[in-house]
Design a protein around this nucleic acid. Structure first.
Ligand SMILES: [Zn+2]
Ligand SMILES: [Zn+2]
Ligand SMILES: [Zn+2]
Ligand SMILES: [Zn+2]
Lengths: 132, 132
DNA sequence: TGTATATTGTTATAATATAACGTTATGTAA
DNA sequence: TTACATAACGTTATATTATAACAATATACA
């Protein structure tokens, strides 16, 4: 069986919903909003999310337990993610900076560990919130 | 009222326990283990953890919902944290690398956002697990 | 001493996530 | 086509993580 080519029904429904949002969504908020499309139980949402995260279509904002669609259409590095998070309005933006991703992908410390993945979350105040 | 100088009773108990562990601990595992010291409810643990995280004595490993004592005794930058996480044995190490922390603290993207904090989690296989 | 803030103790509950089971769909190869 | 393996689905129950709300006590300090 080769790598999955198409998304399944539930996966499409969830991805669709998350892509339309312009901010991270909580799993249960997704659930409430896709119930009219037939997904009735948390597991249906979580399973779709798991797969979508695995293939890089969706990222999890770990510090917020929330899910956001990948905005880097060419995001080959679905496992190398960086986000900026405004601590006031909670706006989250995926950072797409090749210098940063190169720097982190090549990072080695003295532990002899080679890293295949990373997740970076920056916190601060966005422009809007800073000027309030 | 000036900044807290000493830890409270519950804070000491929790910090003590987390410092003795050499891996991240879950909040409820902490709870079970400090019950003999009088902390009976989740909130007592969470409140102590909150404060300890705030003052940088403890960090939260967001991807694991677990808590680990800060190993950088001189960790002035309690809000600039980086960890390496083995995806096989779950060993977690706090990274203390001044080049990395400088690079990230000075990082600016085109959003005009200045970051006061960050949390970085690297994933891979530790030496031991790689050689299995 | 009076006052503000931090911490505590306690019960209940909210929010997040997974276990376990059986069924159905899809891809691969004989 | 049939057989087999893997992936996805549906469902119920439950585990895990975290906070709300309220009253009491302790601490710092003017
Ligand atoms: Zn992405
Ligand atoms: Zn903002
Ligand atoms: Zn630290
Ligand atoms: Zn390991």
């Amino acid at each position: 069986m080769q790598k999955q080519q198409y998304l399944s029904k539930n996966q499409k429904i969830v991805l669709d919903h998350v892509e339309k949002a312009n901010q991270p969504l909580k799993a249960y908020s997704i659930l409430y909003n896709v119930q009219k499309k037939g997904l009735k139980a948390p597991l249906q949402v979580y399973r779709a999310l798991d797969k979508l995260v695995e293939i890089g279509k969706i990222h999890k904002i770990e510090s917020r337990n929330a899910f956001v669609a990948c905005k880097n259409s060419n995001c080959v590095v679905s496992n190398a993610t960086a986000f900026s998070i405004c601590e006031s309005c909670e706006k989250v933006t995926e950072i797409n900076n090749s210098k940063l991703s190169k720097y982190l992908s090549n990072f080695e410390d003295n532990s002899g560990m080679k890293y295949s993945k990373y997740n970076l979350e920056f916190f601060g105040l966005c422009k809007k919130c800073k000027n309030k």
